[in-house]
C-alpha cells in the first residue's frame, strides 16, 4: 500500500540525467545564463571592449618627434582628421559607399522581389544558390578576377569594343573624378567591383522583408482600388523598407571599411580603409587610424537615427 502511494504519479527510476534535467527545468534562468554566458562574454569583452579601446585611442595623439603615442585626452587627432587631405579620403569613401548602396538597392530590389513573390519554390532554391555562390569563393580571388576583367585589354573592354560602344566607354573614362586610364584603374572600376561583391548582402535582407509581407495585404490594396503601381508605392515598398535599410547597412559599412578593392583597382587615391591600414601600420599613428575608423561608425549611427525618424522600422 505505502509502496504504491510513494510512487504514485512519479516514474520510479530517476537516473542522473533525468534528475539533472529536472534541476535545470525548474530553474529556467540557470539554463539561460549557461546558454547566454559565452556569447555575452564574447560580445562584451572582445567586441564592445575593442570598440571602446578604439574610441579611447582616437582621443590620444602621436608625438611628432618621438613617434610615440601620448596617452592623454586630446582632440588633436580629430583636428588632424579634419584637414583637407584627410577629409578628401573621408568624402571619397562616403561618396563611393553612397553610390554603391544606391546602385545595390536599385539592382537588388527587382531581383529580391522576383525571388520573394514570383519564383516557384524550386526556382527559389536555385536563385538563392546563384546569389550566394560568389560568397563561397575567396574574396581576394574574385577581386583579382575583376582586375583582369576590367583591364584595358580585358574581356569587358573587348566586348564593349565589339558592340561598338568604345566611344561611350572612353567618354566615361575621360570624366573627371571618376575616370582613369582604364576601367580597372578608375573609380568606376572600384564601383563596379564593390557593387558586385556586396550585392548579395542587399538582395537577401530585401528578399526576407518582402517574403514577410502577407499576400493578402497586396490583394487588399488592389481590392480597395489601388493599381499595381500604387500598391507598390503605398504598401509593398514601405513594408519592405526595413529590409532595404538592413541591406544598406551592409553595403554601406562594408564599402566604407574595405581596403582591398581600392588598393587592387583604381588610381592611387586612398579610401578610409587604406588610410587606417597605413596609419596603424607603417606610420604607427594608431590614434589617427582609430579616428578614421570612428568615421564609418558615427555615420552609421546617424544614418540609422535618420532612418528611424523616417519610419523605416515602423513596419518591423
Amino acid at each position: 500500500m505505502t509502496a504504491i502511494d510513494a510512487s504514485a504519479g512519479v516514474r520510479r527510476e530517476r537516473s542522473f540525467g533525468s534528475r539533472l534535467s529536472t534541476y535545470i527545468y525548474l530553474r529556467p534562468n540557470l539554463l539561460l545564463s549557461i546558454l547566454l554566458g559565452p556569447p555575452l562574454l564574447w560580445m562584451v569583452v572582445v567586441y564592445l571592449g575593442s570598440l571602446i579601446a578604439l574610441l579611447v585611442n582616437s582621443f590620444y595623439s602621436l608625438d611628432d618627434f618621438t613617434g610615440l603615442v601620448v596617452r592623454q585626452f586630446t582632440l588633436k587627432t580629430y583636428a588632424q582628421l579634419l584637414t583637407p587631405a584627410n577629409m578628401d579620403i573621408v568624402l571619397r569613401t562616403v561618396g563611393m559607399a553612397i553610390a554603391v548602396t544606391l546602385a545595390a538597392a536599385l539592382l537588388a530590389f527587382p531581383l529580391a522581389y522576383f525571388i520573394a513573390r514570383h519564383a516557384s519554390p524550386r526556382a527559389k532554391g536555385w536563385l538563392y544558390l546563384a546569389v550566394l555562390l560568389p560568397l563561397w569563393s575567396s574574396y581576394l580571388v574574385r577581386v583579382y578576377a575583376w582586375k583582369l576583367i576590367l583591364a584595358k585589354e580585358g574581356i569587358l573592354s573587348w566586348t564593349i569594343a565589339q558592340v561598338g560602344l568604345s566611344q561611350t566607354l572612353q567618354f566615361l573614362l575621360n570624366l573627371p573624378a571618376i575616370g582613369g586610364p582604364s576601367l580597372s584603374l578608375s573609380p568606376i572600376g572600384i564601383f563596379i567591383v564593390f557593387l558586385y561583391v556586396w550585392l548579395p548582402y542587399m538582395i537577401l535582407p530585401i528578399q526576407a522583408a518582402l517574403e514577410r509581407v502577407p499576400k493578402s495585404l497586396i490583394e487588399a490594396s488592389g481590392d480597395l482600388g489601388a493599381r499595381p503601381g500604387q500598391t507598390f508605392r503605398r504598401v509593398t515598398l514601405p513594408l519592405a523598407f526595413p529590409g532595404v535599410v538592413a541591406g544598406s547597412i551592409f553595403t554601406f559599412s562594408l564599402t566604407m571599411g574595405d581596403f582591398i578593392v581600392p588598393a587592387s583597382l583604381g588610381n592611387s587615391s586612398f579610401f578610409i580603409g587604406q588610410a587606417v591600414l597605413s596609419h596603424q601600420g607603417t606610420s604607427g599613428n594608431l590614434p589617427l587610424a582609430a579616428a578614421f575608423t570612428m568615421v564609418p561608425i558615427v555615420i552609421m549611427v546617424v544614418y540609422l537615427l535618420i532612418a528611424r525618424k523616417l519610419g523605416a522600422f515602423d513596419a518591423l
Binding site: 490594396s221 481590392d223 480597395l224 503605398r234 504598401v235
Partner: peptide
C-alpha cells in the same frame, strides 16, 4: 480587382501594419 466595384473583408483582416486605423479605413 481594382476595376471592380466590390470590396473584401479578409480572413486575416489584412490591415496595413504601417498605417493607423484612420489611414487604413481611408485607404480606398
Amino acid at each position: 480587382p481594382y476595376e471592380r466595384d466590390v470590396n473584401t473583408v479578409f480572413q486575416d483582416y489584412a490591415l496595413f501594419p504601417h498605417m493607423t486605423v484612420g489611414e487604413n479605413v481611408a485607404y480606398g
